[in-house]
């Protein structure tokens, strides 16, 4: 594929004279605004304290702490969901047959905080419908 001239130019090293000029300016600025020895000594003292903390931690702790807590959290959330679903499903009582075409079920709705009586033409236990409309 033929690349346009301007694009080809972009992929070449810039003019060395321009680079050298900018380099001088930038290095001069970096030297003027850079960190002093005192800064470096302070930063090392600060880092050393952190390194000692790291050394005190048991080996493999960073990896463990990185995965353990999210994994434990997910497991707990999963367990809570399972318990919630199980409790809800067990709250469904037996389906009562009201007539050859009507069935009723009573369950406790945690959301509503009350017993709910549900009458339907669909037999959920048998999995078929009589076609009756309650």
């Amino acid at each position: 594929m033929n690349k346009p001239e301007s694009f080809k130019k972009e992929l070449q090293e810039p003019d060395p004279a321009l680079l050298a000029g900018l380099q001088d300016l930038l290095r001069h600025d970096a030297a003027a605004t850079g960190r002093s020895d005192a800064h470096q000594a302070w930063a090392w003292t600060r880092l050393q304290a952190r390194l000692q903390e790291v050394q005190m931690q048991p080996r493999g702790w960073p990896a463990l702490s990185r995965w353990f807590f999210p994994a434990a959290g997910l497991t707990l959330a999963g367990l809570a969901a399972v318990v919630f679903i199980w409790r809800d499903s067990t709250s469904l009582s037996r389906v009562q047959t009201l007539s050859p075409s009507l069935y009723a079920s009573t369950f406790y709705s945690r959301e509503a905080g009350a017993d709910v009586i549900w009458v339907t033409g669909y037999n959920y236990e048998r999995g078929d419908s009589t076609g009756a409309t309650p």
């Binding site: 972009e10 810039p14 900018l22 300016l25």
Partner: peptide, 23 residues
């Protein structure tokens, strides 16, 4: 990298023209 360098140099060249000439 080359493209970013090219673009940056062009822009800096324009912006720093005065100080660049002095340097």
């Amino acid at each position: 990298v080359l493209s970013r360098l090219f673009y940056s140099c062009q822009k800096l060249k324009i912006l720093l023209q005065d100080s660049h000439e002095q340097a």
